[in-house]
């Protein structure tokens, strides 16, 4: 299978700290890859480098064969979308968050699409006008995730998105990830310690002290 993302000897250094070192990895289109390892090992940094929120200080990353440093970062981030572990929601209401992906693309807001996305993650349509301060942690994470996939990306980078969620919320998020992976052919790279996500994955890698230790 062709690689959608290819890391060639990628390293990241912040001041004196070498956070990532010599990571080479090929991620096939439609792969589901989980990234595990002890905390502080550089997993989140790796995802942020892949999301072009940080620039690798060594090596290079190819997306569909093209060096990402040569691509427009904004266009790239719309194709390779990063979900935060503890997301912050914008504005006042859920709609403010779900409007954002349309606004940045200068697209007309598709309320029907927003409602069906909400419904898919078990939230009623009326939640569009709900204040973000009235949402539970699990509901916030679900709204944040549909904000990322309102326009289906090619790659979804998930940074411990189910950490801290209860079982019911975890199941909903897992189903959503599975749906996008299976039905929309989205490539998934997930930093996780969650057994279900690890079981769903087609490949597992482990990052220890900034280095790629194990690949399965």
């Amino acid at each position: 299978m062709t690689a959608i993302l290819e890391l060639q000897n990628v390293g990241y250094r912040a001041q004196e700290n070498q956070i990532l070192q010599g990571i080479s990895l090929s991620v096939g289109a439609e792969d589901y890859l989980t990234i595990t390892g002890p905390s502080g090992g550089g997993k989140s940094t790796l995802l942020r480098v892949l999301a072009s929120l940080l620039t690798a200080t060594e090596g290079k990353i190819l997306f569909k064969g093209q060096d990402i440093s040569e691509k427009d970062p904004i266009e790239y981030r719309r194709q390779v979308s990063y979900c935060f572990q503890q997301p912050t929601l914008f504005g006042r209401t859920v709609a403010d968050n779900l409007d954002f992906p349309f606004q940045i693309r200068n697209a007309d807001i598709d309320v029907a699409k927003q409602k069906s996305a909400l419904e898919y993650v078990g939230l009623p349509e009326s939640y569009l006008s709900k204040k973000i301060t009235e949402l539970s942690g699990g509901e916030k994470q679900r709204v944040a995730m549909i904000r990322n996939i309102m326009f289906s990306p090619d790659v979804l980078l998930l940074d411990e998105v189910t950490a801290g969620l209860d079982e019911a919320n975890k199941d909903i998020v897992h189903n959503l990830i599975e749906h996008f992976h299976k039905d929309h052919h989205v490539t998934i790279l997930a930093v996780t310690h969650d057994a279900t996500e690890i079981a769903q994955a087609s490949h597992i890698i482990t990052i220890v002290k900034g280095k790629l230790e194990v690949t399965k």
């Binding site: 929120l53 266009e75 719309r78 912050t88 914008f90 954002f100 940045i104 990322n148």
Partner: peptide, 16 residues
């Protein structure tokens, strides 16, 4: 900081 980064991660411009 995180809120700004989230907007960037969603594909927003630096102005967005």
């Amino acid at each position: 900081r995180q809120s700004v980064m989230e907007r960037l991660a969603l594909g927003g411009t630096v102005r967005d």
